[in-house]
Amino acid sequence: MADVATLLSSTANPATVAPRPTAPTLPVSPALAPVLPDGLRRGSTVAVSGSVSLLLALLATASDEGAWCALVGMPPISAEAAQDVGIELSRLPMVPHPGENWVVVVGALIDAVDVVVARVPARLADGDIRRLAARVRSRGAVFMPFLTGRAHWPHADVRIAAEGGSWSGIGLGYGRLRQRQITVSANGRGSAARPRSTALWLPTASGGIEPYLSQPLAAVV
């Protein structure tokens, strides 16, 4: 009994659990493998721009396998779109309006959840950016700044951007939005230095993500 009690007390305190030396990665959807062959490396910063659907798709596989993902300062996200792409909604807490506590909130969540997504405010002190980047590295979380407008994040390990996008299924007064073909490109530092890009269906007709093949997935009207 005494052994079990010791075991319990040692596992119950998260502060004593140090981040493992070889940072494991969080999985991403196979369709994103051409741009992120290693998945999302813990302790890295992955800047995302261009599409909220892309952002949700990046979280989907990890969330489905039990990871906690938090969204800070993001516009209202459709629960349906998130669920259709494969995110577990009960593990997707959101802080829609952090206000001037943006840095504190993001910092607190980096300590506690697996992936923190945050829309970067237009003005942010360089010191705060450096401190957050250091915290991400030491805590083993994945930080995803979502860049809109003129916001930038100078310390990103990987930058992922969605470009273009052409919708199929919709015409001039007939059909409906079915699926979108989109190009996703990634570049960054270290092992991610070589630019990569891939074409995807995002979202597909069922709201998911698929690699773009020469044939469209669903019959196009």
Binding site: S51, I77, A81, D84, R176, Q179, P203, G207
Partner: peptide
């Protein structure tokens, strides 16, 4: 209601 895909960003 509209069929899938749902709009990813809601304007509220």
């Amino acid at each position: 209601r509209l069929p899938s895909p749902a709009p990813s960003v809601l304007i509220d």
